[in-house]
Measured scan of single mutants.
Amino acid sequence: AVSDRLIGRKGVVMEAISPQNSALVKVDGETWRATSGTVLDVGEEVSVKAIEGVKLVVEKLE
């Protein structure tokens, strides 16, 4: 799938994300809905860990 190429890519949080709420991230110039197990604020850099349906699963870039 096209989205599989995004695993391992870096992105930027466009809307705050919490474990209860998905929000938008920008990866390679494209906007995607994403979820995370932690709270992520706007502007934080993230890494794509997986794809669940049409959502990216991201975590904060260390």
Rank of each mutant, 00 (worst) to 15 (best):
A23R: 02
R5T: 08
E62T: 12
E44D: 15
E30L: 07
A34V: 09
L56T: 03
S3D: 08
A23Y: 15
W32E: 09
A50R: 10
D41G: 11
L24G: 04
V27F: 04
G11W: 00
A34K: 02
R33E: 15
E62W: 09
G37Q: 13
A23E: 04
V58E: 02
A50G: 11
K55Q: 14
V58L: 02
L6V: 06
V48W: 00
I7A: 03
V42D: 03
S3K: 10
K60N: 04
E59S: 07
R33V: 15
G43N: 05
V48K: 00
D41K: 14
G11A: 07
D4N: 12
V54E: 15
A1N: 11
S22G: 12
R9A: 08
I51W: 05
I7R: 03
G29V: 00
V57W: 07
V2N: 11
S47L: 15
S3G: 10
A50D: 07
K55N: 14
V58S: 02
P19N: 12
D28A: 07
E62Q: 12
L40W: 02
E52D: 13
G43L: 04
S18Y: 10
T35G: 05
G29I: 00
I7M: 05
S18F: 10
S18D: 09
V25T: 01
S36C: 14
V57Q: 05
S3L: 14
T31P: 05
I51L: 07
K10R: 13
T35V: 13
D4V: 10
K49D: 02
V46T: 01
I17D: 13
G29W: 02
K55I: 15
L24K: 06
V54L: 14
T31V: 14
S36K: 00
R9V: 05
T38A: 10
G43V: 02
Q20H: 12
V48T: 01
L40Y: 03
K10H: 11
I7Q: 03
L24N: 05
V13L: 08
V48Y: 00
E30A: 05
D28T: 01
R9G: 04
G11F: 00
V46L: 01
E59Q: 07
V54F: 13
V25N: 00
D4G: 09
V58A: 02
N21M: 10
I7H: 03
D28L: 07
L40K: 01
G43P: 01
A50T: 06
L6C: 06
D41E: 14
S47K: 13
V48I: 10
A23M: 15
K55E: 13
W32H: 14
L40D: 03
E52C: 13
A50Y: 07
G29N: 09
V2K: 09
A1H: 11
L40H: 03
S47M: 15
A23Q: 05
L56A: 03
S18V: 07
K26Q: 11
V54M: 14
S47N: 09
R9W: 02
G8C: 06
R5D: 08
G11T: 01
L6E: 02
G11Q: 01
V58D: 02
I17Y: 13
Q20M: 11
V27K: 02
V12M: 06
D41M: 14
V57L: 08
A23F: 15
Q20N: 13
V46D: 01
T31D: 13
K10L: 10
